[in-house]
């Protein structure tokens, strides 16, 4: 089981890193999402892998439990990584709409987008 989780984390990381190194915003966002999966699973697994031992206290006396702390940390991490993805998506969208290109690299000059003629602006 340990091997399976570790390899899954590794594969997700590799995929994530490859996508993050792409040149357009969308694959980079996908890559970051995959990296978040990898990180979250890694953190979660840092506790201890257990099956059938939920972190709910038993009413019936002594019992063994799974490690709840990494779970609590990962839970907030999942929600925060959603917030991060959302902001990144917004930035990507904004830069695409502003520049008509979703390239992430600066420095190379390219078509800065369609020129806007003054007459085309219409009242909302």
């Amino acid at each position: 089981m340990e091997m399976i989780v570790a390899s899954a984390v590794g594969v997700l990381t590799a995929g994530g890193v490859y996508l993050v190194l792409r040149l357009r915003a969308f694959p980079v966002i996908l890559g970051l999402a995959m990296l978040s999966y990898a990180v979250n699973v890694f953190l979660f697994a840092a506790g201890k892998l257990t099956t059938n031992l939920p972190p709910i206290l038993s009413k019936y006396g002594e019992a063994t439990y799974t490690d709840p702390l990494p779970q609590a940390l990962v839970l907030t991490a999942i929600v925060i990584s959603f917030g991060m993805t959302a902001v990144l998506v917004m930035v990507a969208l904004a830069s695409f709409l502003e520049s008509d290109s979703d390239r992430i690299n600066l420095g190379r000059s390219e078509n800065a987008g369609l020129p806007v003629e003054p007459g085309q602006e219409e009242a909302q």
């Binding site: 390899s7 984390v9 590794g10 594969v11 995929g15």
Partner: peptide, 24 residues
């Protein structure tokens, strides 16, 4: 990029595996 990704993934997998085998 593929080589970088594979090395990074392999490294993370190794760390994760090493971590999971030991009690902390």
């Amino acid at each position: 990029d593929g080589v970088i990704a594979l090395v990074a993934g392999g490294g993370v997998a190794a760390v994760a595996y090493a971590f999971l085998q030991r009690n902390v």
